[in-house]
Design a protein around this nucleic acid. Sequence first.
DNA 1: CATCGATGTTGAG
DNA 2: TCAACCTCGATGG
Length: 338
Amino acid sequence: MPEGHSVHRITRQFARHFVGEQVAASSPQGRFAGGAAEIDGRTMLSAKAVGKQMFLEFTGGLWLRVHLGMYGAWDFAGDITTDATTSSANGRMGQTNQRGTVASGAAPSGAGTEGENEDSLHSIGAPRRARLRMAEAETLRSSPGEQDDTFPAEPIGAVRVRLLTSHSVADLRGPTACEVLYPEQVAAVLAKLGPDPLVDDPVEAEDRVVKTIGKKPTPIGLLLMDQSVISGIGNVYRAEILFRARLNPHTPGKLVPAESVRALWRDWTYLLDIGVSTGQMMTMDGLDEEQFTRALASRDDRHWVYHRTGKPCRVCGTPIVMEVAAARKLYYCPVCQA
DNA sequence: CATCGATGTTGAG
DNA sequence: TCAACCTCGATGG
């Protein structure tokens, strides 16, 4: 399921290609016919992401809230942006102990994602005719240069919502949440969410997180997954951030030193930037070129501990431990994170 | 080709 | 605590 970085990337597609456009909304599958009718014909005014939730604003004070949940995905077609490297990963680099391999602009291309090769052939960020699925992974549905037969294509399968402009189409499947809200209702949802590094003031947000976590007896491994504490972290980033901090997941929040909490928050900020700019959950820094290539090719070589049960810790060689907590798998090194 | 499992959340019990 | 939601890539035969 998409963690925070994917939702920001999807939102960026809407901001670039749908905001300012009149939108025809429909529910080919039928399960969202009423909501689609409310939005149909309105102009999209803004697209915002907070954590794993996306909010699309339409004229008349209507908002579409979408949460992709476990299986949800957006399929874009028509004029969409397929660059992997646009913007801002470099801004916050250098805060932690990374050595900049990722930051250097060597954008991942690899299996299942849009790639740098296309960027070198086309101007970066230029809209292209293409099909792109955006969820946990982003896959280009047609080969570069290939023309779509018709626009828009007939919706295939269970499309909950189709949003169509004169140049672009977005199909939503399998979301956990998809609903039309009034501004007060949007505010109520936002009020329950913890800070998002790409939304909130960095200093304010950091202090807020320190305060929240400092009060709780709950294990830090659970707090990082709690969207009311911090927005956007999921199971992969949770495990990886804790390893990078060498923190034991069971440590009660209130026993984690404030400085460590600040470091966690800053590391999340850093990893989110990489995720948004590359489209991948790259959580290992300082890889040499060979390691980096391998990491892009194989999911199993991309993380420190996630999905590595029984495999040797990349730092100390101890077998990685997996345990189930709150119905989610938690991975950590029992020695490095003692 | 059948089965498994997943990057998530909600609500019932 | 656990099933339900609902989709599809990975895996194994």
